[in-house]
């Protein structure tokens, strides 16, 4: 399954990068994320619990960031499994400077197996897009808190 999309941010690429690599922020913004702990291999162990009907269940997996070119490009490698099935994915992320902030372009190549593979490509695509939308909306809200608070504080100081 291949998916791609874009997301707009009103902040500089290095700020977006910071947010996208902040474990606390990720735990709060990844839909259904319960925890994210560093492992021995420079990656993270992630636990996710999803409630949307067709894919509901608890998943555990590993993610790792590779091909880093700060703050322009990275690749997110992930694998996860749970009662409803398993997923292996590679997400290619580009952060480009645009007039009013950053444009993120992402493309995802995913292999899905087990029960969830029976859902069908179109439904999976719909659910994935929905989850991406939720993630980027939550991320934008987090960044607003993070950076606008900082700005207010430095203006005061």
């Amino acid at each position: 399954m291949k998916l791609e999309g874009t997301a707009d941010f009103r902040y500089e690429p290095q700020d977006v990068w910071t947010a996208l690599h902040d474990v606390d922020i990720l735990v709060r913004t990844i839909p259904g994320c319960k925890s994210m702990e560093p492992d021995d291999e420079g990656g993270y162990v992630v636990a996710v619990s999803l409630g949307v009907a067709a894919i509901k269940g608890d998943y555990e997996g590993k993610v790792r960031v590779t091909d880093v070119d700060f703050p322009h490009h990275y690749v997110l490698d992930g694998e996860g499994a749970g009662t409803p099935g398993y997923i292996n994915m590679k997400v290619d992320c580009y952060l480009d400077t645009v007039v009013d902030g950053t444009l993120m372009r992402w493309s995802c190549d995913a292999e899905v197996g087990g029960l969830i593979a029976g859902i069908g490509g179109r439904v999976m695509t719909g659910i994935s897009k929905y989850m991406a939308k939720q993630f980027f909306k939550a991320l934008n809200d987090e960044m607003k808190n993070l950076f606008e608070e900082k700005k207010t504080k430095s203006a005061e100081g």
């Binding site: 949307v52 009907a53 509901k56 439904v123």
Partner: peptide, 13 residues
Amino acid sequence: FITYMTTALQSDE
């Protein structure tokens, strides 16, 4: 509405 027969309603809602 997310996609075919799929909504944002969580499994405990």
